[in-house]
Amino acid sequence: MYVIKEAKAFVDAVANEPGGEKINECIQCGVCSGSCTTVEWWEYPPRKLIAMIRAGMKEQVLSSASAFNCVTCYLCTVRCPRDIKPSALMHAVMAIAEREGYKPKTPTLTLFRTLRESMKRGRIWDFGMAARFYFSSNIFNGFKVMPVALALISRGLMPIMPPKPIKSGEIKAILNKVRSIQGTGGKR
């Protein structure tokens, strides 16, 4: 009984997360895995991941980098016969993993955190965002992309100076409210 309860707790948590609502309607047809642009990089492909969530395998799902390989191309979403919206479901899994402090082995989690922080300015500062990401993940990868960065900077396509913050007060008010609605008030 205990095991079943635990399993249900996890699938319910995913179903309560925005994007995960329809997980229980999945018929395991595998169209998502078959459509997935990046499936060969997934340890557990989308269909399997959904099955694992429903089996309550919380630890394996949330500490795997699988969901983080989703490039959000929506091919699965337009094809899914049950209208599950697997892309959104993967976002729900990522959101839970991030919030509960799991550490999947992928730099993408750091990237998404950096991106989320960068929204606070009102407009994205590409250069600062990239620098911040490489400093907090792997600085050597940052050196490897230098030629690309230089090609952009020399053409004036990647300003080194940040853009003027736009309405950052308004943005902060909205994001703070979102955080308090989500009930993670004190943290981050």
Partner: peptide, 15 residues
């Protein structure tokens, strides 16, 4: 106009 929110979509849809 400000950021459309797309960068936060993956880990915080509500934001």
């Amino acid at each position: 106009w400000t950021c459309c929110g797309c960068p936060g979509e993956a880990i915080n849809e509500l934001a």
